[in-house]
Every structure is written in structure tokens, then in C-alpha cells.
Design a protein around this nucleic acid. Structure first.
Lengths: 217, 217
DNA sequence: AGCGGCCTCCCCCGCGCGGGGGAGCGGGTC
DNA sequence: GACCCGCTCCCCCGCGCGGGGGAGGCCGCT
């Protein structure tokens, strides 16, 4: 019986890479993919994978929150293997605290990736913070640009407001649609902008499209 | 004769993803890989690829320097397709100044990646994902969705302004980017809004996404 | 019972935005 | 030459937007 894996990453290219690397192994089977953290829980329920390879920086629900959500809501949770780049160093520990079973650098060689999946599937735990620090130190002398959508844990109401923003509605129209006051909408909009790292509603809508939160028709 | 491609990225996962996406095409052949910019030149000399898919952020020699080096030292240089994670203006312009033939976001969908490789191999140069979509919409099976913008018939300058609007820039920033006055940008924005039937810049950006004028993901 | 998160609503305030006009200039067409 | 069009820049003006605060009610967790 092969190890079944669910891939969760917002970049199709990374998913394709993981799939190519893992599917080449006879004892590993990729059973599904997700592009954001919000889609993980239903997929885990229906596919019941042994391992979830989870990116940290993702739209809608980041890997840390998604890890917490899976471990909190699923009866027999899969092993969580956090897949990260060096920029996410700070978040690695948070992910491990959230209950992740191990982490993996995207820079890893294919053999290491395969090895990591096998190990966590077998119940081993991968903790190599030293190597992460090394890599972070080596490459970290670069930009400090943000991860706008990663920390974006929108509440239900905020997500609803963002959807309406992404349909071109003004605050007043959103208020009418949701049957609340205009000031309330302003509060939600401000919260959305802050969480997305957007300067104005236009940038928020762009982020919504870019992250796949809303899809062009 | 298939298009031959050399993959240059420091992350094996990204290389595997590109390879998986490109190798699935009968008319594209991945002839080699490199993990840093320094290894590119000898590989280009020996493999003579049609296209080099080049990451920007790499150890030893970044993609921009590697691009310059290849174009400076190789007799019949390949097309350089810069593959980048962030839609970062400075890097993009720097890469294009260095002689790159186009750039591609890692967030792009597989079809867009394949399309981009084919286009640069054919001698087309793609400056922005938007132009990729435009070309795709023009040659590919035209969707009815593309009509609002097709009918709008934006002038070149207006299209440029819309592109920058769709990247979240304010009027002042657009003015700075285009090296014109703020009042000029206002005029163009007004013209764009009128032609798109948009009430504000947010609706204009939505129309840009919905029509495929700019590409998500 | 306390605490924190979420949703709701309110104030003031600055400013970017968009509409309404107008105008000069170069290039192309007729 | 007359004409149109695209690009450029300018004026005034109203208003939606977003930031800065604050506040009360509800719920779930501890």
C-alpha cells in the first residue's frame, strides 16, 4: 500500500514539481492538489491522505492556520509536512507549534523530498532548524518585502465584503447588499486592506484575483 | 524540430515543475538544467538551446547577470525567458535592459508557461503577462468575454495606463512611471473608464481581469 | 466571571479620485 | 489647407475613500 500524499501550494509550478518528484516513486501516490489552505480540510476528509505537503505562504488560509484547522477538525489527521522557502524561517517554528510533523525546504534535492515524505509517513519527525537558519542566513541578506496574502486570515464577513469589492461595488452598495450600515462596511474594508497589505480597494481586488480568491469568468 | 529549452533555477522543485509542464508538450524538449547562473554559459555553449528559462534570484550569478553574460559571450544566443516569482518592476526592467526576450511569473498557469516558451522561441517578445493574454486572445479561440475590451479599443497609452492601474498603482505613481504629469494620467484614466463603462478604477481593473487583458495567477 | 475575537455602528479628517470643462501640439488623412 | 485624433497639461468641484480613534453586544473559550 503506497503512501498517499495531498499537495497544497498556491503555485501550480511547485505542485507540478512535487508531483513529478513524488509520483516517480512506486511507493508514493499523489492523490490530490489544493491551491489554498481553505480547500485543504474537505480534501483531507474525502481523500484521507497519509501526508499533506503544505506550503506556508498561501492565499485565504495560510499553511499554519490550515495545519491547525486540519488537526483540530479531522478525526485521524494526516501527517503534515510543511514545505517552505528560506523566507519563511520565522513561520517554520510557528508551523511546528501548530502541530506540523516536519518541514521541507523547496531548495531540497528530489531525493531529500522523497525521503522526507517517507519519513513523516512512517511517523518520524523531521526537525532541522539549524539548516534552515543556515539557509536563511545565506540568502536572507536580500529584500524584506512582505508576504501580503500569507497572513491574510480573513473572517467570514471580511471575505464576503472582499467578494463584493471584487465585483465593483462601492461601500454604500455593499452595505445595502449585506443589509448593514455603511460604517460597518468601512470597518470590514479597512480590515481587509490591512490583512491583505493593500493600500486601497483596487489593490485588494487585484490580490483577490491574483490569489484565485475570485476567478475571472 | 522541437523547441529546445534549458532550465535555470536554483530550486530543484521549480525545475521539476517546469520540466513536467514543458516536457509534456510534443514540440518542446528540455535539454538541460542548471542550478545557478554561473553554470549557464558552458551549458548554453554545449547544448545550444533555443530558449533559456532563467530565474532571477539565484546564488553565485543572478539571472540578470547571467543574461548579460550569455548575450555578451555566445555567438548565436538563445532567447532568454526570465522566470520570476514577484512582479517586481526593478528586476523586470533590469532583465529586459540586460536583453531578456520576455518574462514569466512562476504563478502562471501551465498553459501560459508553455505558450510563453513557444512565443519567445518564435521570436516574439513578451514584456508582460498582459500582452501574453492579449496575443492568446487574439490568436486563440476568442471568447465572448474579451468583447468589452475589444470594443473599447483603447489607445496604446490608455492600455498602458490600464495595465498599471491593474497593478495597483495610484495616478501619481502611474505619472511617475510614464514620466508625464499627473493631469495627463487623469485624462487617460477618465478615457479608460469611459471606454470600459467603468464607474471607478476598481471596476476598470475588474474588467481588465475578466476580459483577460491581465492574467491572474 | 473574565477575556478575546467578531460584528456592528459612530465620530473627525485629509486626500485621492473622478467629472466637467478647456487648450496646445504633433501626426495622419482627405 | 482643413480636419480629426492621440497625447499632453490645466482649472474647479464634489465626494467616496481610507485612517485614526472609540464603543457596545454577542459568543466561545478558559
Amino acid at each position: 500500500m503506497p503512501v498517499t500524499v495531498l499537495l497544497v501550494d498556491d503555485e501550480p509550478l511547485v505542485r507540478a514539481g512535487l508531483r513529478a518528484v513524488l509520483a516517480a516513486q512506486p511507493d508514493i501516490e499523489v492523490v490530490g492538489e489544493a491551491a489554498d489552505g481553505a480547500a485543504v480540510i474537505p480534501l483531507v476528509r474525502s481523500l484521507r491522505p497519509d501526508v499533506v505537503a503544505m506550503d506556508i505562504r498561501m492565499p485565504l488560509l495560510d499553511g499554519i492556520e490550515a495545519t491547525r484547522a486540519v488537526l483540530r477538525t479531522v478525526a485521524e489527521p494526516p501527517k503534515i509536512l510543511v514545505v517552505t522557502t528560506f523566507e519563511d524561517d520565522e513561520y517554520v517554528y510557528e508551523a511546528l507549534r501548530a502541530g506540523a510533523d516536519g518541514f521541507l525546504l523547496k531548495r531540497s534535492r528530489p531525493e531529500e523530498i522523497v525521503h522526507a515524505v517517507r519519513l513523516v509517513a512512517a511517523g518520524e519527525s523531521l526537525l532541522f532548524p539549524a539548516s534552515v537558519r543556515q539557509l536563511a542566513a545565506r540568502y536572507g541578506a536580500g529584500r524584506a518585502d512582505a508576504e501580503p496574502l500569507a497572513k491574510a486570515r480573513l473572517t467570514e464577513r471580511e471575505a464576503e465584503v472582499l467578494r463584493l469589492m471584487a465585483r465593483g461595488l462601492t461601500n454604500a452598495e455593499i452595505a445595502a447588499a449585506l443589509v448593514v450600515g455603511a460604517e460597518t462596511v468601512k470597518s470590514h474594508v479597512s480590515a481587509v486592506l490591512a490583512k491583505l497589505g493593500a493600500r486601497d480597494r483596487t489593490q485588494a481586488v487585484i490580490a483577490a484575483y491574483e490569489s484565485g480568491f475570485v476567478a475571472p469568468r
